[in-house]
Design a protein around this nucleic acid. Structure first.
Lengths: 134, 134
DNA sequence: CTGATAATAGAAACGATTATCATTACGAGC
DNA sequence: GCTCGTAATGATAATCGTTTCTATTATCAG
């Protein structure tokens, strides 16, 4: 519904490559890791391009982004477009999508009580997956 | 209880200055803003030193840190040492401490179900305070 | 096939934070 | 009060993820 016809969004080799890498990588990973992964596969894609596609995909809601404790941005292709959060392993990046109706409700209630509006929230859970338990 | 007597932690002008600035600033603010505020007051404190003190205070639990959407780290002196979260105004940085027993419990439950351990969580709420409602 | 222009990618710019290290100053003991 | 060892400081340089710049390349409608 947003494609007037004529000259618009072009399908490029790089766009597919980034999307493919994202699909094949199991957990959250950084833009740089994705870039490295592409080179490993023999795909030549500039780092700039990787960032650009990740940003676009993120805006479209096709990938989820979180920030790891060090401040790096991590990306992951997500199954559902619905709002959800993640429980991510600090060691391997493997993550589980968790649904948080409870949290959403809590956030709204708290915000309303304080008189705040247009409230947005970030909720991230980091821990050790079964394979990496201390 | 952790001060053997002899040569230990030194109380310096800079340490007090950073603490004072933190006390006087109402909302969350960045290390650089704190540094600027100090210079404005005529206090001469190096940026490096500001960062160092903020880190120490943060480890002691005397200040809370969050990351704003752009990735910058923000600091704020906190009343309670108890675990809590914040509801921060996107415009003025003013923030309210909110207690989240519900969230903690939810986080633990979700983690246990997925078999994750050593789970840590970050929960931040950003919105518009009454004064800045659209 | 061809041309207009979107997309690409390397290099340089950026901005927050951290590391380096010579200098300064606190404060315990004389 | 004065000295000295050492913690603290702070200017500068280095890091590092990310963004901007811009000349070049490649896509796709006609």
């Amino acid at each position: 519904m947003e494609q007037p016809r004529g000259t618009r969004v072009r399908g490029t080799r790089q766009a597919s490559a980034v999307a493919a890498a994202l699909t094949s990588l199991p957990g959250f990973c950084s833009a740089q890791e994705i870039h490295a992964e592409l080179r490993r596969r023999g795909e030549t894609v500039g780092l700039t391009t990787v960032y650009r596609h990740l940003q676009v995909l993120s805006e479209q809601g096709a990938v989820d982004t979180i920030r790891d404790p060090s401040g790096e941005t991590l990306y992951r292709q997500c199954g559902s477009t619905a709002h959800h959060h993640h429980l991510t392993c600090r060691v391997c990046g493997r993550s589980v999508e968790v649904e948080g109706r409870v949290v959403e409700q809590w956030a709204e209630k708290v915000a309303a009580e304080a008189g705040f509006t247009s409230v947005d929230h970030t909720v991230e859970l980091f821990g050790l997956c079964p394979d990496h338990a201390a």
